[in-house]
């Protein structure tokens, strides 16, 4: 009797200790995230004002000015990345899901997985050698291309995985109605997987929106409005980097503000993606 009781007390103690350890670990893991958000929010808000969103950077030595060109530039770069990356990634994902059992399919899948692990600096150098050196100038195109290459494996593999989740019965239903295979794939399989694919794309976009390294030697930077996509263009991550390593107090202030804008953008995309998923599950 006493033995049972003491072993019960012992097990309860162990249970509590392990549970406490887990909670502690979770809290420690979350601390950096909240500290980053807190710091960026507190310090960024001080730098935010109307001019930040509407004005160009002031010449060195002058106070004030904004990062309007960097905000627009980031949006343009991410837009270009989507333009190149989404159609290619989705189609590659369709290929893998529909015909990926061949040995070529396995090679493509393996390549995509390897590419997902390549450091983004390397991809920047790759585009630098491939595009920037040949065209002899930094450009928004090169930057967009670098971001697209980073997006590609994520979009491809998400599309494949989500297409594989669509029940085969739907394919048979469509084929049984005399619908050609390509229409079945596009309008039944891909359409059914669309919310999930959209989520994957949004997460990929959120990731590349914050990439700095590949932009440093592809789109470079620009203190003015870019007059075209074949010119160097400003972007939020590169602007943050440039301002943060500068010696000027006012630039530090603006770097924090730019960081806040960037984090808000990425957070918004993430939350939007998650809401999309929840609505999809809820409608079932």
């Amino acid at each position: 009797m006493n033995g049972i009781r003491s072993s019960y007390v012992y097990r309860r103690a162990v249970d509590r200790a392990v549970r406490a350890a887990c909670v502690l670990a979770a809290v420690i893991a979350l601390v950096p995230l909240f500290l980053v958000l807190y710091y960026v929010a507190v310090r960024g808000i001080r730098g935010l004002n109307w001019a930040f969103f509407t004005e160009l950077p002031k010449p060195v030595g002058e106070e004030g000015g904004g990062a309007a060109n960097a905000i627009v530039g980031s949006i343009e770069l991410v837009g270009l990345a989507c333009l190149f990356g989404i159609p290619l990634g989705v189609l590659a994902g369709v290929f893998l899901a529909e015909f990926g059992q061949s040995s070529f399919g396995r090679v493509v899948r393996f390549a995509a997985d390897v590419m997902a692990g390549v450091p983004s600096v390397t991809i920047g150098i790759f585009i630098y050698a491939l595009v920037v050196l040949r065209t002899k100038q930094f450009s928004a195109y090169a930057g967009g291309l670098a971001l697209a290459v980073i997006m590609l494996p994520t979009v491809t593999r998400t599309t494949e995985e989500l297409l594989k989740l669509v029940p085969e019965a739907l394919r048979e239903a469509a084929l049984g109605l005399g619908v050609p295979q390509w229409r079945t794939t596009l309008w039944v399989m891909l359409r059914t997987a669309a919310p999930g694919v959209a989520t994957g794309i949004m997460l990929a976009v959120a990731r590349v929106a914050g990439e700095t390294a590949p932009l440093l030697f592809t789109s470079f930077n620009n203190r003015f409005w870019a007059r075209g996509l074949n010119e160097p263009i400003a972007s939020l991550p590169v602007q943050i980097y440039t301002y943060a390593v500068s010696p000027y107090e006012d630039w530090h202030r603006q770097a924090w503000a730019a960081a806040l804008v960037l984090v808000s953008l990425v957070l918004f995309l993430n939350v939007a993606a998650r809401v999309l998923v929840r609505n999809r599950v809820g409608s079932r």
Binding site: L170, E172, A173
Partner: peptide, 15 residues
Amino acid sequence: RRRVGMVFQKPNPFP
């Protein structure tokens, strides 16, 4: 398949 239609074992409407 437009001339010979098919109904499957499990109902499979397009979701």
